[in-house]
Design a protein around this nucleic acid. Structure first.
Ligand SMILES: [Mn+2]
Ligand SMILES: [Mn+2]
Ligand SMILES: [Zn+2]
Ligand SMILES: [Zn+2]
Lengths: 124, 124
DNA sequence: CCTTTGATGAGAACGATTATCATTTGCAAG
DNA sequence: CTTGCAAATGATAATCGTTCTCATCAAAGG
């Protein structure tokens, strides 16, 4: 099922529905939403909001974070670029920050969202 | 106009509409949306998505970033906590990261979004 | 006054997501 | 091989935040 999510990244529920129908012609959109909700709850899929009014889904392909990455979002053309180049330094700071915040606010941090906004090479 | 946005943070368009009607009884929801859109474009107001299906707005009270902060979002009760304790170190890394990303991807970064998700003290 | 132009409010339209409900499917007991 | 029952599914309606449309209003200037 979720195998088909591997195709391309940042797909909307409708994108996924259309792709799925090629292999499972009778599948309904409601089932797609229900399945995605489950996958998100089980931490198998990320659900993102890039500001265009529809949720985007991205598979989590490993359990150890190798696949983990952040996003550059173009404000003009809405293009989304994945990056994980600076994760090394980021991770270090993130861990410190998460630890500090957890203590100060007595908050159990399980996840984070980091996105940079601006203009991509084609738009600036 | 935007003076009234100072009231409390993380208000939805509807929240703002209700508050505004106390002083301007005839104001319409469309005008609220239109005004917010303008304020966001002019970088006077931030527009956030905390995952509850409605946009939240927050005034930017200064121009030099003193007011800038990030968010902790409780996945259970949807409470949002502002923090700026670790902003100093974050900003340092952010600048490095932004510089590196700008060069590598030829991407002009203008803004960023950082949110930590988890469970607040009351929910964990 | 009169005309023009931009702002406004009421309500319709829109679109993504969610809820409902009848039907189908899977599966195990009889 | 039936029967029964619970879970899954698909069609469709409902929901709800946001945007669009358009008639009306207000201000400005002549
Ligand atoms: Mn991605
Ligand atoms: Mn805030
Ligand atoms: Zn672009
Ligand atoms: Zn909470």
């Amino acid at each position: 099922m979720s195998i088909l999510s591997v195709a391309k990244e940042h797909l909307s529920a409708d994108d996924i529905h259309i792709k799925l129908r090629k292999d499972y012609p009778g599948i309904g959109l409601a089932t797609v939403y229900r399945t995605l909700e489950l996958l998100v709850k089980r931490n198998l899929v990320y659900k993102f909001d890039f500001g265009d009014g529809r949720a985007r889904y991205e598979i989590i392909s490993d359990e150890k974070g190798k696949n983990h990455h952040h996003h550059l979002v173009c404000k003009k053309c809405s293009r989304v670029i994945d990056y994980n180049d600076f994760i090394d330094k980021e991770v270090e700071l993130l861990q410190k920050t998460e630890k500090g915040l957890s203590q100060k606010y007595n908050f159990k941090i399980t996840d984070h969202l980091i996105q940079f906004y601006g203009l991509c090479d084609k738009c600036k």
